[in-house]
Amino acid sequence: MCSDMEPNNIMGDKYESRLYIGNLDFRITEAALIKMFSPFGTIVSEDFLWHTRGPKRGEPRGYAFVQYRTVEEAKLAKEKVHGKLVYGRPLVVRLASEKDLVDGAGSSDKAIDAKKPGLTGSCPGQLTRSAKIAAIKNKLKDMEEQNHETKRPKKDEGS
């Protein structure tokens, strides 16, 4: 069960020692990820994310999280592994707390905002149904606005 009663998880040591690992090739396994990050400290947990629905169900999502025992271990791993080529792709390694501040996680800003409560470590990746619906509505609205903006000049040019 998810607990919102742990405010220290948001910016405490537990959260600060959690790494986001992105740009993972689909051939990387959980075991390979753990082996790659083990030399830098004690890994207390790892979350290797998979598609749970749709045509890609069961395939890796291309990112994961690794939780170290200390902030120092996490920072060392970030320093040593960020940018390292694995299967020809440079890994993106950030402290999970930095991920919220940096655009480029692959989804819209509004979808990331909806996920923030789930990034406390107590229930990663969980969204309420209403948060999922709100994120989808925001994405559709953005797409409609972009589509409307690109069509408008073409209509004016043809008149």
Results as ranks from 00 to 15, higher is better:
residue 116 K to S: 00
residue 144 E to V: 12
residue 159 S to C: 03
residue 86 V to P: 04
residue 49 L to P: 01
residue 143 M to F: 12
residue 156 D to Y: 09
residue 118 G to S: 11
residue 110 K to V: 06
residue 78 K to L: 10
residue 90 P to N: 08
residue 67 Q to N: 03
residue 24 L to C: 09
residue 58 G to Q: 10
residue 145 E to N: 07
residue 68 Y to I: 02
residue 135 A to K: 12
residue 30 E to R: 10
residue 138 N to L: 13
residue 11 M to P: 00
residue 44 V to E: 09
residue 98 E to M: 11
residue 151 K to H: 08
residue 2 C to H: 07
residue 17 S to G: 03
residue 32 A to T: 05
residue 75 K to L: 07
residue 116 K to D: 00
residue 97 S to G: 06
residue 111 A to H: 06
residue 134 A to M: 14
residue 27 R to F: 01
residue 61 R to Y: 09
residue 67 Q to W: 01
residue 37 F to K: 02
residue 28 I to F: 04
residue 112 I to V: 14
residue 132 K to Q: 15
residue 11 M to N: 05
residue 2 C to I: 08
residue 62 G to A: 13
residue 4 D to L: 02
residue 74 A to K: 00
residue 154 K to F: 11
residue 102 V to L: 15
residue 96 A to L: 10
residue 75 K to W: 01
residue 149 E to Q: 12
residue 112 I to M: 14
residue 131 A to G: 15
residue 77 A to L: 03
residue 91 L to G: 09
residue 153 P to F: 03
residue 129 R to P: 07
residue 1 M to R: 09
residue 13 D to C: 04
residue 90 P to L: 11
residue 109 D to P: 14
residue 28 I to G: 04
residue 89 R to I: 13
residue 159 S to P: 02
residue 71 V to A: 04
residue 88 G to D: 03
residue 117 P to L: 00
residue 96 A to C: 09
residue 109 D to K: 15
residue 93 V to T: 05
residue 150 T to Q: 13
residue 121 G to F: 03
residue 46 E to W: 01
residue 123 C to S: 05
residue 94 R to H: 14
residue 34 I to R: 12
residue 149 E to D: 11
residue 89 R to S: 10
residue 143 M to P: 03
residue 119 L to E: 08
residue 33 L to R: 05
residue 7 P to A: 00
residue 87 Y to H: 08
residue 9 N to P: 00
residue 100 D to R: 14
residue 1 M to P: 09
residue 76 L to Y: 08
residue 64 A to F: 12
residue 86 V to G: 02
residue 22 G to A: 07
residue 58 G to Y: 11
residue 67 Q to G: 00
residue 92 V to R: 14
residue 90 P to R: 10
residue 83 G to C: 04
residue 6 E to Y: 02
residue 124 P to S: 08
residue 6 E to K: 06
residue 12 G to I: 01
residue 110 K to G: 06
residue 30 E to T: 06
residue 83 G to L: 04
residue 114 A to C: 08
residue 69 R to E: 15
residue 142 D to N: 14
residue 107 S to H: 13
residue 156 D to E: 11
residue 4 D to W: 03
residue 92 V to S: 12
residue 52 T to N: 12
residue 35 K to S: 07
residue 121 G to L: 03
residue 56 K to R: 07
residue 157 E to W: 11
residue 29 T to L: 03
residue 61 R to P: 02
residue 41 G to P: 02
residue 39 P to H: 08
residue 92 V to Y: 10
residue 127 L to A: 09
residue 151 K to I: 05
residue 25 D to P: 06
residue 101 L to C: 06
residue 66 V to F: 07
residue 68 Y to W: 04
residue 128 T to W: 15
residue 140 L to E: 14
residue 42 T to P: 00
residue 39 P to G: 04
residue 143 M to R: 09
residue 159 S to F: 06
residue 57 R to G: 07
residue 158 G to E: 11
residue 130 S to V: 15
residue 90 P to G: 11
residue 14 K to R: 06
residue 89 R to A: 12
residue 38 S to W: 12
residue 74 A to E: 02
residue 30 E to D: 07
residue 36 M to I: 03
residue 64 A to V: 13
residue 47 D to G: 09
residue 27 R to P: 00
residue 31 A to Y: 05
residue 131 A to H: 15
residue 130 S to E: 15
residue 57 R to P: 06
residue 81 V to K: 04
residue 146 Q to S: 15
residue 52 T to L: 13
residue 16 E to H: 02
residue 117 P to T: 00
residue 54 G to T: 04
residue 128 T to R: 15
residue 64 A to W: 11
residue 46 E to K: 05
residue 34 I to C: 10
residue 150 T to V: 12
